[in-house]
Design a protein around this nucleic acid. Sequence first.
DNA 1: GGCGGCCTCCTCCTGGAGGAGGAGGTCGCC
DNA 2: GGCGACCTCCTCCTCCAGGAGGAGGCCGCC
Lengths: 220, 220
Amino acid sequence: MTIRVLLVDDQPLLRTGFRLILQSEPDIEVVGEAGDGEVALSQVRALRPDVVLMDIRMPRMDGVEATRRLAEFDDPPRVLVLTTYDLDEYVVDSLRAGASGFLLKDVPAEDLVDAVRVVHRGEAVVAPRVTRRLLDRFARLLPAPRTDDAPLPELTDREHQVLLLMARGLSNAEIAGQLVLSETTVKTHVSNVLMKLGLRDRVQAVVLAYERGIVKPSTS
Amino acid sequence: MTIRVLLVDDQPLLRTGFRLILQSEPDIEVVGEAGDGEVALSQVRALRPDVVLMDIRMPRMDGVEATRRLAEFDDPPRVLVLTTYDLDEYVVDSLRAGASGFLLKDVPAEDLVDAVRVVHRGEAVVAPRVTRRLLDRFARLLPAPRTDDAPLPELTDREHQVLLLMARGLSNAEIAGQLVLSETTVKTHVSNVLMKLGLRDRVQAVVLAYERGIVKPSTS
DNA sequence: GGCGGCCTCCTCCTGGAGGAGGAGGTCGCC
DNA sequence: GGCGACCTCCTCCTCCAGGAGGAGGCCGCC
């Protein structure tokens, strides 16, 4: 089983270069090429590659848009984005579009073939220079610097457990059902949680749970 | 100029293994070891390493906390986190703490020394298996372009306003005070919000507000 | 003008939430 | 054994939340 690769770049010379590199690997097969995003889409439909090496800047349809369209395919190929510059927005947009990796075009041959194998097995790879920027940006997006001035060590396991269920919008009766307890017991735990955290009601408990990162959004 | 490395792991055997791998590289020098986070901090002060290989799970002070403290140093070392499992929370917490890389402990020797060089020159590296999860998570955090376009189109301005205050933990009476309304009116708006969104009570409204990104956990 | 959407406020009513104040149980520690 | 922390489950009580079913006023549109 070879890894079927499609090359997408508007510069024929670059495609040739990549083809030479990849073709010399026994487990990789370059099944086609495309010079813009639209051709890439039809090539993917026709050739069913496993991995697409995708340039960002291309005429007609750019790599980001093409990646986005590919993500809507049944059994879509993995997309490995290749950019000349490590520009943040390209990286972020591609990622949002569903790419599995980002490399710079000056990538060493060995790293390129490694990356093809990595994305093919469902993992992801990002060029180190890009990773740094990506992590910086990621860190800024994260729930916050977490000033752990007032942690919540005072909560017992049971109380913490109840808090988590509360934070998912469950009523006392539902929590009781979930934990196989009487509603009375749940009310006791809830009361203790509120008292310990200095809160008025379960609504504030939910707010605190999200603000402190005890529960995090986007689980759904 | 060699790269000065400090090994931090509570398992001496692992430290020895890493030491052997790194020591064989001409441009890398292992200047010290530490068995927990606290020792690591004093070692960094004394030895001024360029790169710290940091385990996550350790007694006394774990790797995440140690990384966070290191970030507050003048001219802090780069931290390369090593963990046994590719657990999401560790990754995210480490990055937030300021780590420059994240590797699994079963990393091939060659990749390890590469990673040390990469973080030393200010770039970053993440294990492919972890990268996939990280990117998925990152993608969810990003300002979603289309799914967020019409999350709650049916809410009127007033209802949306009430929802925001509800999501901050305010009671009906407090919302009424805030918006200069009667409590009755607020209750009407709340009821409408719940009905339109198909929710049971304000607790679920708060959960939805956070999950849909209508309100976001903030630094404050 | 009439109609519909939105905002405002009302009363009556039920149910759940949460506090007060218990009690019995297990477990680990001194 | 005694003590304290934790988990479990009571009862009585109050109060807010939320539904049902209104009503009047404003505004834009046909």
